[in-house]
Design a protein around this nucleic acid. Structure first.
Lengths: 151, 151
DNA sequence: CTACGATGGTGAGGTACCTCATCATGAGGA
DNA sequence: TCCTCATGATGAGGTACCTCACCATCGTAG
């Protein structure tokens, strides 16, 4: 049991420490391109799924709705997205990419792909597959099954 | 190449999304015990390594020194650590656990272990080992080799 | 039709990180 | 000695998340 616990802690520690570094690398790369990871995520979701309200966006990203408000505020200030009223629901506001937002999104994809390549490129294809499987397994067996992310 | 990129992105996405959930779970568990993940990390390092200055602590945690100042401020306010002057270097301030800090640290360890068990418990021992190896491999091959963390 | 609970968005306030600038001290060389 | 550069800590200010409280609107059950 001592060894079982030890492995448990080891994997937890490895996971958290690596994340910290990986996040820094990606964020830094995004920063160099005048973006940020959080904003890029929003832009890419909008490009993939089209305009949507903030609540849906929050669900997709797995964030609290309030957090999306802030991020969209910033993106709107920078002219990368535009908010319009929803004709069918006067509470809601539809967020859509602007042309500038689309451009930024393309840049973000390129930067992200480079970063992903730098980070996970040291693994073989087989290893990457294994890693994806392991992460998926952890995720599906996670407690507190409240995961409103609709993929 | 399309498939190669796809796997790359998939693993990146899986990694980031899982982290978000895992972080929430652990932080929530810590919160229920009146702590927080960030503070618990500091406490546990101090317990493992003994009193040290903030700069060293920053190195161990992989944080910017400025961030440690904030966290230690909070811990000091709560009476979990105490700062004393370093006799050998009048710039430095030595951070040490208080008895209350030691107690909190024990609680934190328990909570963390439970959380780790909930999160990674769905993997077999073998799978956990594989995961640790993969993460380690990624980490050692990471670009921008500036990793001032002394283990 | 109205009265209610659920939902979309935001204000206020908090935590955890960051960078950059600043200040005091330490430590080495001219 | 004194000058300079490196280093420990912090002030100021920023980003990305969070919760909780609140308001307007929606949808539904009486």
């Amino acid at each position: 049991m001592a060894s079982r616990d030890a492995v448990q802690l080891e994997v937890g520690q490895a996971y958290f420490e690596l994340y910290h570094q990986v996040h820094r690398i990606v964020d830094q790369a995004m920063g160099a391109a005048g973006l940020s990871l959080a904003r890029a995520k929003v832009l890419m979701r909008l490009q993939d799924r089209g305009p949507m309200n903030q609540s849906t966006l929050a669900g997709l990203l797995g964030y609290a709705p309030r957090s999306v408000t802030d991020t969209v505020d910033a993106l709107e200030r920078d002219g990368l997205v535009a908010r319009t009223d929803d004709e069918n629901d006067r509470r809601a506001r539809i967020v859509a990419l602007t042309p500038a937002g689309r451009d930024a999104c393309e840049t973000a994809r390129t930067v992200r792909n480079q970063a992903m390549d730098e980070i996970f490129g040291s693994l073989t294809v087989r290893e990457r597959g294994t890693l994806v499987e392991l992460l998926a397994k952890i995720r599906t067996n996670l407690p507190t099954g409240e995961n409103p992310c609709a993929q």
